[in-house]
Write a protein that binds this DNA or RNA. Sequence first.
DNA 1: GATATCAAGTCCTATATAGGAATAAGGGAA
DNA 2: TTCCCTTATTCCTATATAGGACTTGATATC
Lengths: 264, 264
Amino acid sequence: MTQKPLRVVPGSKSGGAKAKHRRISEEILSAIEDGRWVPGERLPAEDQLAIEMKASLGTVQRALRSLVQMGVVERHHGRGTFVTGARAQEGQLRHFRFMAEGGTQLLPVYFKIVGIETVRESGPWSSFFGEREDNYIHIHRLVNVNDEFDVFSEIYLPASRFSEIAGMSEATLNGVSFRDFLAERFNAPTINTHQTMACQPLPPRVTRTLNVPHGQYGIVWSIGGLSYRNTPITWQRIFVPPSDRVIEIVPTSAVEQSPLQEVF
Amino acid sequence: MTQKPLRVVPGSKSGGAKAKHRRISEEILSAIEDGRWVPGERLPAEDQLAIEMKASLGTVQRALRSLVQMGVVERHHGRGTFVTGARAQEGQLRHFRFMAEGGTQLLPVYFKIVGIETVRESGPWSSFFGEREDNYIHIHRLVNVNDEFDVFSEIYLPASRFSEIAGMSEATLNGVSFRDFLAERFNAPTINTHQTMACQPLPPRVTRTLNVPHGQYGIVWSIGGLSYRNTPITWQRIFVPPSDRVIEIVPTSAVEQSPLQEVF
DNA sequence: GATATCAAGTCCTATATAGGAATAAGGGAA
DNA sequence: TTCCCTTATTCCTATATAGGACTTGATATC
């Protein structure tokens, strides 16, 4: 008489065992996270990886395709597979950007740090970062967009991971894009975002800095930035006052990130 | 001496020939578009499709995976492959929704048509629909959200495709969600969206209808709806006045649409 | 009637293999 | 030098095949 098999909850993989192509993806992803392969670097060829991973070519290819989907690597016919660089989005603000009415893109050109502090306060960012984090680096900035108008930006970074930043001088941080900075210095590229918007009276500290009337309404735009494996790395809030010129905020939609025609 | 081969532009597929798995995807997609398989219906099994399409199993599977990625079909282990239904998003507003501060979702509950007309005017929607379309059904609606506040919505539909709607009575259209309506009656589900936002003074017609002060600022939220093959089917503009309660507009991000963990 | 077993249908994973197509680099001829 | 050809490398497509895993419904057993 054989042992009676355990009753397994239907719909779940037995024992949580993952598919091989998936384990390979994870392994490569880990290597990139750990900096074993740096952005821009070429990975070993498919067949080479297949040998290393003790898998067949097809399986490795599938793993790599899913990494392409995630935006972690890029593949080029005849050239190789490359780690998607910090700068790989070619200077494009991939996840959010300002746009003029016609469709022309407006670029943020000027960053001025208004204040840096380390705080413990909780807020909307707490739930984004999760229970484990309770210490944040909080940076206020004045950002000029395309030399035309100003917005007020505040960013929260988990202090545990980015403690070095707390010690940096304003001079060092002035003018940098945090997105690029985190990607390049901390190997923490923003892979995806979580965004919400609201129309509210701008808080006094903002109206004062931006020099707009007290109580002025504006858009409060919250952006949670996620890196590899959906790890939260930034929480940002941008206060946008109304402007004569029609400025549109474009949350880059899935349409653009992966056009239907290209999902293969 | 053999014929000298034509110089082909590098980086482009020679002659534009498409991969077989891709042609299969397209073919299945066409069948769904044409209503040969209707939402909720089960497609033939993989191996059956492989025979019909004269392809191997692996190729068909790859084609089907890409359709899953597009959100056109759903596959269930052991059950089959099904056309994603109009209602398949399970009543969820997949592409946009209102949210309260805590994260609770606010549902639109009440639609009241304010006016229907057929127009030829051009505007931001023109470029969305493309040059070919110059006749639109324009519908104004008053929408109540979660029994708490009102927003003003206007929607443009290409008259060529949805001419029947122009003839419908307000009574018929009152209270319906156009998203569901187009999906069910016209086999035109909204597969993806294109969204922009701006903070502007609300136009008089809106402040009047919503009964808020003239010149009040609000969010102007534009949503272009795309169906199969990125065909534009709706262009909608929602005017959201500020509210005491903090209402957040959540453009559903790619994070939610395809969590990194699930892209396999 | 309730429960366990079985079988068919379906999707899922994985392999081994073959040839095609894009890229880059090197060498030879005009 | 410039152009063409060849070659090596790499990714891309496709096939045939095998077995596993999940779901459903029918059948047998208690």
